[in-house]
Simulated assay, not measured.
Amino acid sequence: MSDLPATIANGNPGRRKGNRVTMDEVAERANVSPSTVSLFLRDPDAVSSKRAERIREAIAETGYTINRLAGALAASHSRTVAVIVPSMINAFFSETLQAMQDVFEARGYQLLISNSNYDPDRELELLRAHLSWSPAALVLTGNQHQAARSLLEATGIPVAQMWELGDEPFHLQVGFFHEDVGAALAEHLYQSGVRRFTYVGSRMHLDHRAQKRAEGFRAWLEKKGCTATIIALEESTSEVVLTQVFDQLAKTADQPQGLCCSNDVLAIGALFEARRRGIDVPGQLAIAGFGDLPLSKLSAPRLTTVRPYPLEIGRTVATRLLQWIETGTLPAEPETVDLGFELIVRESTCAVPD
């Protein structure tokens, strides 16, 4: 057997490995009460600056870490908020998650994030897995969760839906109506002189928000006596796919045409394909997207698009949920927050003054 002293855990000499530093020990070292340490961990601004500094020093010296499992057992839920998004690489959702994380972390909560890949069955599996960790709240993307409704209604915790507004909300919906996005784009193209319309969307059999934008696009034009061709791509953007789309557009090239894409990535790809074919944009073909990604301002011509508000969605969801989490209440009636969107008109659809 080694004569060396027991392993020192959490930076505290003489402490055997596996024995955690307690809140009482931090309080003793900082010369404050355990309740003051607890308050500091929940809300640092609620503690005087002098006491807060002593507590920070004590935590650094002892290597104290919060035992969130113990807290979850005492409070019947953990200090985590479960969030399910359809895509981890989509810039919209990344910004929303960052905004949510900033708000929740300031109050001592952590996000438990997972990706459903637009699959409702996977979303249900992830939901069950998250609930096993007793989260303080749940955040889902969109409003189509029929398979999970009974499970969600039985959780007893706040449930928020983001990025879409629609029927049968749970406790909170924050976002906008995607049908209105499609209608706004259709109206803009129509007023720009376009009379032949095509909407191209990728994976719309899974991404029902893109499908709703297509429906809004078609419905607005039908009221004007116009017909919109809807092209539903089964895969993400590729040169082969865009070539097929432009081959189809070429069959009706006798009038000014408008191409509305379900996202900016697809629309920017269409701009490249149009340039490759020598098609004048917007003279022969007006192109619009959705998302207002950074590259949309740098494309040639610059891309007309719709700007959602991902940061505001994240902040609003987090702020409202925190109110209910910290008071231990649920709203008497579901709340809906319509943050709207902005149509950004640039040179890909019409001449824009400098």
Rank of each mutant, 00 (worst) to 15 (best):
N19S: 14
A228F: 00
R128G: 11
D43L: 03
Q284F: 01
F290M: 08
R275H: 02
P34N: 11
A318M: 10
D180F: 04
D102H: 05
R320I: 04
A72R: 13
I66D: 03
D254C: 00
T7Y: 09
Y309I: 02
K297N: 15
L185Y: 14
A160Y: 06
V265D: 15
Q146K: 05
V194F: 01
M1W: 09
F176N: 02
R276A: 13
V265F: 11
F176A: 02
H205Y: 12
S192W: 02
H77E: 15
A72H: 07
L339N: 11
S38E: 00
R307D: 13
P331V: 12
H205S: 11
G166E: 15
F104E: 03
Q323W: 13
P135H: 00
L285A: 08
T7A: 02
K212P: 01
E187Q: 09
G269F: 08
Y118I: 10
V47K: 06
V181L: 01
L221I: 01
S48K: 10
L140T: 03
E222H: 04
V281Q: 06
A46M: 08
A72N: 13
N67G: 05
L206V: 11
S296N: 14
V337M: 03
K297M: 09
V85I: 02
T141F: 10
S262Q: 15
E326T: 09
V265H: 12
D102Q: 05
L131R: 08
P5N: 08
E28Q: 06
I157Q: 11
Q161F: 05
L249E: 02
I113D: 09
L311F: 07
E222W: 08
I268V: 06
S2A: 03
H205D: 15
A148G: 07
H208W: 12
I59D: 06
T65Y: 09
L295M: 15
V306H: 06
R320H: 13
P120W: 06
D280P: 03
L124V: 06
L298W: 15
D43H: 03
G182C: 00
R15C: 05
K50M: 09
N19R: 14
A60Q: 11
H145I: 00
R346P: 12
V174E: 07
C261K: 05
G11N: 13
P120K: 13
F93V: 05
T80F: 11
A214T: 07
L138A: 04
D264G: 13
E333G: 01
G216F: 00
F246P: 00
I287V: 15
M162Y: 10
L330M: 07
A184W: 14
A214I: 01
H208C: 09
E57L: 10
L151S: 08
D43C: 05
L69A: 14
T22P: 03
E326Q: 09
P301D: 06
K224F: 04
R315H: 13
D119S: 13
L152P: 13
A58E: 00
